[in-house]
Nucleic acid binder design. Structure first.
Lengths: 249, 249
DNA sequence: CGGCTTTCTGCGTTTTTGTGCAGTAATTTA
DNA sequence: TAAATTACTGCACAAAAACGCAGAAAGCCG
């Protein structure tokens, strides 16, 4: 088993179960605990997991601990959310994934807006529920504790029954070559279904996610209609995407 | 259980109940009181809780003054929750409605418990998600903002596909003549479906709901297997229900 | 192709960390 | 003030981490 492969597996396990033990990983993959420890350390340095004595935890596990950095990217997300909201009008059926950017958008929805929001993300649903004029449809199925969304065949089947006007995807990684990618298999399946069920696909991504990629592909750039970042549309970083036929906001 | 994990659990408990006892935490998590004390100390040093003799308090507690009757009915619900939890064992499929009593039960589930919980109540789902060993299945459909649960034909159809071991119903009103009743049409439909899909039906009701009724019937007393209140089972108020063949706890 | 470097992995040893226990001091409660 | 809880201290033991090292594998290059 290759190092990269191993780390991808570890990351997946962490995101799935919220925690991993060095000892159990070691026996699962058949490498020494030393190697596991080194992998965990690398992943921790990249900020993908939180290393603790005995194993590692997923980032979402200890939500509380996101200091100064959070406020900074909060503002970025507000800019993105504003642009996204400008695409919504009354009466629309809107499909959304989860993720902090989507949550920010949900919070900023204008109170007069009348629309139907469909999502499997618990966090997003909670936000939508606060709004007076929004109909909320919850996609049900097994809940993934790490990503706090519903996942599974039922959820996907349900999404496939829908014909939404527009779909907002919180984007974990996007680049020219691989399109949009993610690191959780089940989340990927869900997003794929969402793309199939929507007339227009909007990707919300903060700039640091641009030109990065993750192990699993959701879809190529050709699936995307609109890309929203906190940068001005004419930023050179975004030029390749505009050239690929995507509307950049 | 990892140290960080344990501390996260403790913190969650503190924020939930506003206080924790070292002794009860120790037996819940199965570590020595010494370890708990050291955890509390660390959390206190980080300013996340207030350590006191015998346990710890939440920060918010020191400020807010709870009206006595809130605490009182909180305690009633805790008694009910405890009795209800005694009916649950590992591996069970458990269907639950919403309501504050159910929420209290969800909060008090022992961390070692491995079971599958199925619900359409957003609040309950959020609680279940915090527990390390519980599988959570979310019933999806349109969300009723007033009751904060999913309602509708899809939700009912989904429930009908389930064969649960036990079903816990938060009860709004119960009396000898009308059985269990409620005042929300859609909630009633859902609870009816839940009753049909479960082997054993448990009603959780605080004493003040006993011998009251609401406009819409969910089901007669014959549908109920177990009735749980905060009163001792031999309380005369409950005698008619025991006579009707219901196990009263 | 052969030699060189670099990277990766596993092993043994030393440190550090986490946990429980016993005895004692401090505190609550009656 | 006495009895009972709870807190603290030092210690012992186990588990995990860190460190240095050596062999294996992969990549590079003339």
């Amino acid at each position: 088993m290759l190092k990269k492969e191993r780390q991808a597996y570890i990351l997946h396990q962490v995101n799935l179960h919220n925690k991993v033990l060095s000892s159990s990983l070691s026996s699962e993959i058949n490498v020494s605990e030393d190697t596991i420890r080194r992998d965990l350390q690398e992943l921790a340095e990249e900020g993908k997991i939180i290393k603790v004595h005995g194993g590692a935890l997923s980032h979402s596990f200890s939500q509380v601990h996101f200091p100064a950095d959070v406020v900074y990217s909060q503002n970025q997300k507000k800019i993105i959310a504003e642009k996204a909201i400008s695409l919504i009008s009354n009466g629309m059926f809107i499909l959304t994934s989860g993720g902090t950017t989507i949550l920010e958008m949900a919070r900023m929805l204008p109170p007069q807006l009348k629309a139907t929001f469909i999502s499997g993300s618990i966090g997003a649903i909670l936000e939508y529920m606060h709004h007076p004029n929004i109909e909320v449809i919850l996609i049900g199925d097994k809940i993934s504790k790490s990503s706090k969304i519903t996942v599974g065949a039922e959820a996907i089947a349900k999404i496939k029954q829908i014909r939404a006007d527009i779909c907002f995807l919180g984007t974990n990684a996007i680049d020219i070559q691989h399109g949009i990618t993610d690191n959780d298999w089940e989340v990927v399946q869900l997003k794929k279904a969402m793309i199939e069920s929507s007339q227009k696909i909007v990707c919300l991504a903060i700039a640091e996610k641009i030109n990065t990629f993750q192990p699993i592909q959701i879809g190529g750039l050709d699936k995307i209609d609109i890309l929203i970042t906190e940068l001005p549309p004419e930023d050179p970083l975004l030029k390749p995407y505009a050239d690929a036929g995507i509307t950049v906001l």
